[in-house]
Protein backbone atom coordinates (compact mmCIF):
# COMPACT_ATOMS: atom_id res chain seq x y z
CA UNK A 1 0.00 0.00 0.00
CA UNK A 2 1.31 3.43 -0.82
CA UNK A 3 2.13 5.68 2.07
CA UNK A 4 0.17 8.76 1.17
CA UNK A 5 -3.22 7.06 1.35
CA UNK A 6 -3.21 6.39 5.12
CA UNK A 7 -1.70 9.82 5.74
CA UNK A 8 -4.31 11.65 3.70
CA UNK A 9 -7.05 9.74 5.45
CA UNK A 10 -5.67 10.49 8.92
CA UNK A 11 -5.31 14.16 8.07
CA UNK A 12 -8.87 14.34 6.82
CA UNK A 13 -10.33 12.83 10.00
CA UNK A 14 -8.23 15.08 12.22
CA UNK A 15 -9.39 18.11 10.27
CA UNK A 16 -13.01 17.08 10.82
CA UNK A 17 -12.37 16.53 14.53
CA UNK A 18 -10.69 19.86 15.03
CA UNK A 19 -12.68 22.19 12.77
CA UNK A 20 -15.51 22.71 15.29
CA UNK A 21 -13.04 23.40 18.08
CA UNK A 22 -11.07 25.88 15.97
CA UNK A 23 -14.27 27.63 14.90
CA UNK A 24 -15.29 27.91 18.54
CA UNK A 25 -11.96 29.45 19.54
CA UNK A 26 -11.89 31.87 16.61
CA UNK A 27 -15.46 33.01 17.20
CA UNK A 28 -14.81 33.62 20.88
CA UNK A 29 -12.83 36.66 19.71
CA UNK A 30 -15.57 37.82 17.37
CA UNK A 31 -16.96 41.30 17.92
CA UNK A 32 -20.27 40.58 16.19
CA UNK A 33 -23.33 39.57 18.19
CA UNK A 34 -24.47 37.05 15.58
CA UNK A 35 -22.58 33.83 15.94
CA UNK A 36 -22.02 33.50 12.21
CA UNK A 37 -20.47 36.64 10.83
CA UNK A 38 -17.05 37.98 11.53
CA UNK A 39 -17.24 41.46 13.01
CA UNK A 40 -13.63 42.08 13.95
CA UNK A 41 -11.42 41.12 16.83
CA UNK A 42 -12.69 41.73 20.36
CA UNK A 43 -12.51 40.46 23.91
CA UNK A 44 -16.05 41.55 24.73
CA UNK A 45 -17.36 38.02 25.37
CA UNK A 46 -14.58 37.33 27.84
CA UNK A 47 -15.48 40.58 29.53
CA UNK A 48 -19.18 39.68 29.58
CA UNK A 49 -18.25 36.32 31.05
CA UNK A 50 -16.35 37.76 33.98
CA UNK A 51 -18.97 40.42 34.62
CA UNK A 52 -21.61 37.74 35.00
CA UNK A 53 -21.73 37.11 38.73
CA UNK A 54 -23.74 33.89 38.59
CA UNK A 55 -21.31 32.55 36.01
CA UNK A 56 -18.24 33.38 38.07
CA UNK A 57 -19.89 31.81 41.13
CA UNK A 58 -20.64 28.64 39.12
CA UNK A 59 -17.01 28.59 37.99
CA UNK A 60 -15.75 28.70 41.55
CA UNK A 61 -18.27 26.06 42.61
CA UNK A 62 -17.14 23.77 39.81
CA UNK A 63 -13.46 24.28 40.56
CA UNK A 64 -13.96 23.56 44.23
CA UNK A 65 -16.06 20.48 43.46
CA UNK A 66 -13.51 19.16 40.96
CA UNK A 67 -10.68 19.83 43.39
CA UNK A 68 -12.33 17.99 46.26
CA UNK A 69 -13.73 15.15 44.13
CA UNK A 70 -10.32 14.54 42.54
CA UNK A 71 -8.60 14.57 45.92
CA UNK A 72 -11.04 12.24 47.67
CA UNK A 73 -11.22 9.83 44.72
CA UNK A 74 -7.44 9.73 44.46
CA UNK A 75 -7.13 8.84 48.14
CA UNK A 76 -9.83 6.18 48.12
CA UNK A 77 -8.79 4.93 44.67
CA UNK A 78 -5.16 4.56 45.76
CA UNK A 79 -6.18 2.61 48.86
CA UNK A 80 -8.48 0.42 46.75
CA UNK A 81 -5.69 -0.31 44.28
CA UNK A 82 -3.27 -1.10 47.11
CA UNK A 83 -5.81 -3.40 48.74
CA UNK A 84 -6.50 -5.19 45.46
CA UNK A 85 -2.81 -5.51 44.75
CA UNK A 86 -1.54 -6.55 48.18
CA UNK A 87 -4.27 -8.10 50.24
CA UNK A 88 -6.05 -11.34 49.88
CA UNK A 89 -9.60 -11.06 51.12
CA UNK A 90 -13.00 -12.53 50.57
CA UNK A 91 -15.15 -10.91 47.91
CA UNK A 92 -12.25 -9.53 45.89
CA UNK A 93 -14.07 -10.49 42.70
CA UNK A 94 -17.17 -8.62 43.84
CA UNK A 95 -15.06 -5.53 44.55
CA UNK A 96 -13.49 -5.71 41.11
CA UNK A 97 -16.92 -6.29 39.62
CA UNK A 98 -18.37 -3.19 41.24
CA UNK A 99 -15.54 -1.02 39.93
CA UNK A 100 -16.05 -2.49 36.49
CA UNK A 101 -19.78 -1.76 36.65
CA UNK A 102 -19.15 1.88 37.51
CA UNK A 103 -16.77 2.25 34.60
CA UNK A 104 -18.80 0.43 31.99
CA UNK A 105 -22.39 1.26 32.82
CA UNK A 106 -23.93 4.17 30.95
CA UNK A 107 -23.56 7.37 32.94
CA UNK A 108 -27.28 7.87 33.05
CA UNK A 109 -27.79 4.55 34.86
CA UNK A 110 -25.27 5.57 37.50
CA UNK A 111 -26.97 8.95 37.75
CA UNK A 112 -30.47 7.68 38.49
CA UNK A 113 -29.23 5.03 40.89
CA UNK A 114 -27.41 7.68 42.92
CA UNK A 115 -30.41 10.00 42.83
CA UNK A 116 -32.58 7.17 44.17
CA UNK A 117 -30.08 6.56 46.98
CA UNK A 118 -29.77 10.21 47.98
CA UNK A 119 -33.53 10.68 48.12
CA UNK A 120 -33.97 7.45 50.08
CA UNK A 121 -31.51 8.46 52.79
CA UNK A 122 -32.84 12.02 52.76
CA UNK A 123 -29.63 13.73 51.64
CA UNK A 124 -30.28 17.26 50.45
CA UNK A 125 -29.09 17.64 46.87
CA UNK A 126 -26.16 20.03 46.68
CA UNK A 127 -22.43 20.00 47.26
CA UNK A 128 -22.32 16.77 49.28
CA UNK A 129 -24.43 14.74 46.85
CA UNK A 130 -22.37 16.05 43.92
CA UNK A 131 -19.14 15.18 45.72
CA UNK A 132 -20.24 11.62 46.53
CA UNK A 133 -21.38 11.07 42.93
CA UNK A 134 -18.26 12.54 41.32
CA UNK A 135 -15.91 10.60 43.59
CA UNK A 136 -17.78 7.43 42.66
CA UNK A 137 -17.44 7.83 38.90
CA UNK A 138 -13.80 8.98 39.13
CA UNK A 139 -12.80 6.08 41.39
CA UNK A 140 -12.32 3.29 38.80
CA UNK A 141 -10.09 5.52 36.64
CA UNK A 142 -7.79 6.21 39.59
CA UNK A 143 -7.75 2.52 40.54
CA UNK A 144 -6.77 1.50 37.00
CA UNK A 145 -4.03 4.12 36.76
CA UNK A 146 -2.53 3.08 40.11
CA UNK A 147 -2.87 -0.66 39.41
CA UNK A 148 -1.00 -0.23 36.15
CA UNK A 149 1.83 1.40 38.05
CA UNK A 150 1.88 -1.31 40.72
CA UNK A 151 1.88 -4.20 38.25
CA UNK A 152 5.50 -3.73 37.23
CA UNK A 153 6.73 -3.25 40.76
CA UNK A 154 9.35 -5.34 42.57
CA UNK A 155 7.44 -7.27 45.22
CA UNK A 156 10.55 -7.82 47.33
CA UNK A 157 10.70 -4.18 48.38
CA UNK A 158 7.57 -4.15 50.55
CA UNK A 159 8.54 -7.56 51.93
CA UNK A 160 11.96 -6.23 52.87
CA UNK A 161 10.33 -3.29 54.63
CA UNK A 162 8.08 -5.65 56.58
CA UNK A 163 11.03 -7.87 57.50
CA UNK A 164 12.87 -4.86 58.81
CA UNK A 165 10.01 -4.32 61.21
CA UNK A 166 7.93 -1.65 59.47
CA UNK A 167 4.21 -1.83 60.14
CA UNK A 168 1.85 -2.14 57.20
CA UNK A 169 1.02 1.54 57.47
CA UNK A 170 4.67 2.64 57.65
CA UNK A 171 5.59 0.39 54.75
CA UNK A 172 2.76 1.82 52.63
CA UNK A 173 3.76 5.37 53.48
CA UNK A 174 7.49 5.00 52.92
CA UNK A 175 7.68 2.39 50.14
CA UNK A 176 4.43 2.12 48.18
CA UNK A 177 3.22 5.72 48.13
CA UNK A 178 6.46 7.08 46.60
CA UNK A 179 6.31 4.36 43.93
CA UNK A 180 2.74 5.14 42.90
CA UNK A 181 3.15 8.92 43.16
CA UNK A 182 3.16 9.60 39.39
CA UNK A 183 0.03 7.47 39.00
CA UNK A 184 -1.60 9.39 41.83
CA UNK A 185 -0.89 12.70 40.14
CA UNK A 186 -2.13 11.43 36.78
CA UNK A 187 -5.24 9.92 38.37
CA UNK A 188 -5.91 13.15 40.24
CA UNK A 189 -5.68 15.21 37.04
CA UNK A 190 -7.97 12.81 35.19
CA UNK A 191 -10.48 12.90 38.05
CA UNK A 192 -10.34 16.68 38.11
CA UNK A 193 -11.12 16.88 34.40
CA UNK A 194 -13.86 14.25 34.50
CA UNK A 195 -15.53 16.09 37.35
CA UNK A 196 -15.24 19.47 35.64
CA UNK A 197 -16.83 18.13 32.44
CA UNK A 198 -19.58 15.96 33.79
CA UNK A 199 -23.09 16.85 32.68
CA UNK A 200 -25.11 13.66 32.84
CA UNK A 201 -24.59 12.66 36.47
CA UNK A 202 -24.61 16.26 37.74
CA UNK A 203 -27.96 16.96 36.07
CA UNK A 204 -29.52 14.41 38.38
CA UNK A 205 -27.74 14.91 41.68
CA UNK A 206 -27.34 18.68 41.93
CA UNK A 207 -29.68 21.03 43.67
CA UNK A 208 -30.40 24.76 43.34
CA UNK A 209 -28.14 25.48 46.31
CA UNK A 210 -24.97 24.65 44.41
CA UNK A 211 -24.90 25.61 40.76
CA UNK A 212 -21.97 24.25 38.76
CA UNK A 213 -20.51 25.30 35.42
CA UNK A 214 -21.53 22.43 33.09
CA UNK A 215 -25.16 22.77 34.15
CA UNK A 216 -25.02 26.52 33.64
CA UNK A 217 -23.57 26.01 30.15
CA UNK A 218 -26.24 23.40 29.51
CA UNK A 219 -29.07 25.78 30.28
CA UNK A 220 -27.40 28.44 28.10
CA UNK A 221 -26.81 26.35 24.98
CA UNK A 222 -30.18 24.62 24.90
CA UNK A 223 -31.75 27.72 23.41
CA UNK A 224 -30.07 29.59 20.59
CA UNK A 225 -26.45 30.64 20.39
CA UNK A 226 -24.67 32.49 23.16
CA UNK A 227 -21.34 34.07 22.21
CA UNK A 228 -20.25 33.96 25.88
CA UNK A 229 -20.21 30.19 25.58
CA UNK A 230 -17.51 30.47 22.90
CA UNK A 231 -15.33 32.39 25.31
CA UNK A 232 -16.04 30.02 28.17
CA UNK A 233 -15.45 27.00 25.95
CA UNK A 234 -12.10 28.41 24.84
CA UNK A 235 -11.02 28.96 28.43
CA UNK A 236 -12.06 25.42 29.37
CA UNK A 237 -10.23 24.05 26.35
CA UNK A 238 -6.98 25.80 27.25
CA UNK A 239 -7.36 24.67 30.82
CA UNK A 240 -7.94 20.98 30.00
CA UNK A 241 -5.15 21.02 27.44
CA UNK A 242 -2.83 22.26 30.13
CA UNK A 243 -3.97 19.53 32.53
CA UNK A 244 -3.60 16.84 29.87
CA UNK A 245 -0.10 17.89 28.90
CA UNK A 246 0.86 18.07 32.56
CA UNK A 247 -0.41 14.56 33.29
CA UNK A 248 1.24 13.05 30.19
CA UNK A 249 4.49 14.78 31.04
CA UNK A 250 4.43 13.41 34.60
CA UNK A 251 3.67 9.88 33.40
CA UNK A 252 6.34 9.97 30.70
CA UNK A 253 8.97 11.40 33.01
CA UNK A 254 8.29 8.74 35.65
CA UNK A 255 8.84 5.97 33.11
CA UNK A 256 12.43 6.95 32.54
Amino acid sequence: MSRWLPRTYLTLVYVLLYVPIIVLVVFSFNDSRSGYEWGGLSLRWYEALFNNRAMVQAMWNSLWLALSAATVSTMIGALTALALHRYRFRGKKLLNGMLFIVMMSPEIVLAISLLALFLLVGLKLGYVSLLLAHVTFCLPFVVITVMARLSGFDERLPEAARDLGASDFTMTRTVLIPVIMPALVAGWLLGFTLSLDDVVVSTFVSGPSYEILPLRIYSMVRVGLKPEVNALGTLLLVFSLFMLILSQWILLRSRR
Binding site: I21, V23, L24, G35, Y36, V229, N230, L236
Partner: peptide, 24 residues
Protein backbone atom coordinates in the same frame (compact mmCIF):
# COMPACT_ATOMS: atom_id res chain seq x y z
CA UNK B 1 -7.57 12.13 23.40
CA UNK B 2 -7.48 15.92 23.64
CA UNK B 3 -11.19 16.06 22.82
CA UNK B 4 -11.85 13.42 25.50
CA UNK B 5 -10.45 15.90 28.02
CA UNK B 6 -12.45 18.84 26.73
CA UNK B 7 -15.96 19.64 27.73
CA UNK B 8 -18.40 17.61 25.64
CA UNK B 9 -21.16 20.20 25.99
CA UNK B 10 -18.92 22.87 24.57
CA UNK B 11 -17.96 20.63 21.66
CA UNK B 12 -21.62 19.85 20.93
CA UNK B 13 -22.32 23.56 21.00
CA UNK B 14 -19.46 24.15 18.56
CA UNK B 15 -21.22 21.83 16.11
CA UNK B 16 -24.31 23.96 16.46
CA UNK B 17 -22.29 26.97 15.25
CA UNK B 18 -21.44 25.01 12.11
CA UNK B 19 -24.77 23.38 11.37
CA UNK B 20 -27.24 26.21 11.99
CA UNK B 21 -29.39 27.38 9.09
CA UNK B 22 -27.43 30.63 8.78
CA UNK B 23 -24.38 28.88 10.18
CA UNK B 24 -20.90 28.54 8.77
Amino acid sequence: IVPFWTNSLVRTYALKLLLATNGL
